[in-house]
Design a protein around this nucleic acid. Structure first.
Lengths: 226, 226
DNA sequence: ACCTGAACACCGTTCAAGT
DNA sequence: ACCTGAACACCGTTCAAGT
């Protein structure tokens, strides 16, 4: 009863596959955040039942890990090679910053220990550039940890902020204004620092600040050159 | 029908309160991780119904935020004051490292934008020490971001690893051995860095490496002194 | 081999009813 | 004011049955 001359037995444009499932998962995650990835929503999106998905994927955790890995690999591929080590590091960092802004869920997904093989995709190019910078072997791991944590930490924080303002339907300016006001209400005796930087919050550029931090770490590494 | 001469109307040792609920939540989170905090489990632990908890707390998100804040405040209080700025920063960093090792869930909880008021508890003492170090005003925020991200990033990663080994009932040595083996199987052409550091993974001390990274960042900051 | 979809266990949240 | 606990909506996962 199905179409002759074709391998397709389904009314959809293509057969189900792990890749198509992961692609659909990424779409849902980007649109509605981590809460948007549910099996009912995914089944609807793929015009199938939940059982079909479980044939290709072990569980929700594996799905999240696979989605995360796909985004990270795609991001790193887009970074041009052949530039000087500091420039390459800056490009890698900004690439991840932008990817996390578009996919806020990668931050928390990368923390899980299950995704250590995804992490190595990120560790490898950064580590190579650190070696190229001439950082001594003894402090290479510390240097890598500092850089990697900074990228994932600040990128994740920025993504969470964006996600928050978007979800609550408030503008970025209003959001910063709110935090600024809250920080200025803190006690001057116990919170002098927060009060002193509160004003800068309103006018700062997250991406530029992020890049400044990367440069600061690169600056620190250059003092380690042997 | 209830006991005379006492304000207590309940068979429990004490009346329900936000504090007792948060304390119980922390207990569950520390024992069973983020998945361990459920309203059925919390109700059982407090010998009450879920509705009673909702009288004191808005929802699960607020509960997680409150639990996180309580742990962070408790941790920071335990850090002795009066030491030199670098020593104080080291003590703050190690305090958070240990707290995250005992409470792996704080990592992902702190990322959420809702906990910005908890974050300021951490930003304030670190910021004060950065000022005391003589870091110029213009790069204070970048310096703070780098330090904070490093602490939360590496601390969170370490906590996730511990959680993973504990949950899967494997020893730390076996776990590192597994990662080491996986990294050594990577292609030599594409992953020279991961292969070269794989061996060190087995013998390294997470806490010592963490401290080395903090010192590296402190070193970088000292070059910024005006 | 691959898919269907009902069924199950479990969880967050609500709410009418109690004290 | 504060608590009880049944009820509801929803989700992850399984599995007997289909093709």
């Amino acid at each position: 009863m199905h179409a002759r001359g074709s391998g397709r037995q389904r009314g959809r444009e293509d057969a189900l596959s792990r890749e198509r499932i992961v692609a659909a998962a990424i779409e849902l995650l980007n649109r509605d955040g981590e809460a948007g990835l549910t099996f009912p929503a995914l089944s609807r999106h793929l015009a199938t039942g939940p059982g079909a998905i479980y044939w290709h994927v072990a569980d929700k955790g594996e799905l999240l890990t696979a989605a995360c890995e796909a985004v990270v690999i795609r991001t790193l591929k887009a970074v041009p090679a052949g530039a000087t080590p500091p420039d390459t590091i800056r490009a890698l960092a900004l690439g991840m910053f932008d990817a996390m802004a578009a996919s806020a869920w990668i931050g928390s997904a990368l923390i899980r220990a299950e995704s250590s093989l995804t992490m190595v995709q990120l560790i490898e190019p950064l580590g190579q550039q650190i070696c190229a910078l001439g950082v001594p072997k003894k402090v290479r791991w510390a240097a890598l940890s500092a850089l990697l944590s900074y990228i994932l930490g600040v990128g994740g924080q920025n993504a969470a902020n964006q996600q928050y303002t978007h979800a609550h339907g408030i503008g970025r300016a209003d959001y910063l204004e709110k935090i600024c006001a809250a920080w200025k209400q803190l006690d001057a005796q116990t919170h002098p620092f927060a009060r002193s930087v509160a004003g800068e919050l309103r006018t700062h550029d997250d991406r530029a600040d992020f890049l400044a931090g990367v440069n600061l770490i690169l600056q620190g590494m250059s003092t380690l050159r042997r």
